[in-house]
């Protein structure tokens, strides 16, 4: 565990807490893509199947369980409790266009052709693009509440910090995983446009509004 990895995990955790607090406090999931949330739930459940096969550390097990459980709670809040506030009309991204290619790619390019490893690889590929329905929703409505922007910033920062962690591990531990690194790069690049708007607008107290 190095500082980049720890900050990355904390950033991920903060993102999830911000999202749940936003939904709970405002009693609304307006502006949040239920499709991205479904993709994240698929990502965590397929990646953390190794909870049954491998023990890494108490920290690792705890975080995995938190990610799986909070993603399910989020889906429940969006599709049951606060369903009336869910922005169906704008959340129209076709997630099968992300799931199927991620699955095919995982079957073709993986470290080992076993069920658990292919599902792990699938989850890595799917996570790299899972935010697209959310970014699509923001671009369709043309704006995002600042709390949603903070959520996206924390969520985007997490994989960016992991990139630094992988650079560190390459030199310090002779460890690297090309699949995770390439997917992590793609994932972080997808946020770049948002990061730019966040820094130039939201941090200066303005609303995140896309140029017309």
């Amino acid at each position: 565990m190095n500082i980049f990895r720890l900050l990355g995990d904390l950033s991920h955790l903060v993102a999830i807490i911000i999202l749940l607090l936003k939904i709970w406090k405002t009693r609304s999931c307006a502006g949040i893509s239920g499709k991205s949330q479904i993709l994240f739930a698929i990502v965590y459940t397929t990646r953390y199947l190794d909870l049954f096969t491998t023990y890494v550390s108490t920290y690792n097990t705890f975080m995995k369980l938190v990610f799986i459980m909070t993603s399910i709670v989020t889906i429940f809040l969006m599709n049951a409790k606060f369903k009336a506030t869910y922005d169906h009309n704008h959340d129209t991204f076709r997630i099968e266009f992300l799931i199927l290619p991620a699955l095919v790619l995982a079957l073709l390019i993986n470290n080992e052709f076993t069920i658990i490893e292919v599902l792990w690889t699938f989850s890595i590929y799917l996570e790299s693009v899972a935010i697209l329905p959310q970014l699509f929703l923001v671009s369709k409505t043309g704006e995002a509440e600042s709390i949603t922007s903070h959520y996206l910033f924390a969520l985007g920062s997490y994989r960016g910090l992991y990139l630094l962690n992988w650079v560190y591990r390459y030199y310090a531990e002779d460890h690297y995983d090309l699949i995770a690194i390439v997917a992590g790069l793609v994932q972080t690049i997808l946020y770049c446009d948002f990061f730019y708007l966040y820094i130039t607008k939201v941090l200066k107290g303005k609303k995140l509004q896309l140029p017309a």
Binding site: H12, T54, N60, H175, Y176, D177
Partner: peptide
Amino acid sequence: YHVLAKHDEL
């Protein structure tokens, strides 16, 4: 350089 058999990250 090697790839770890088990995934120790999240």
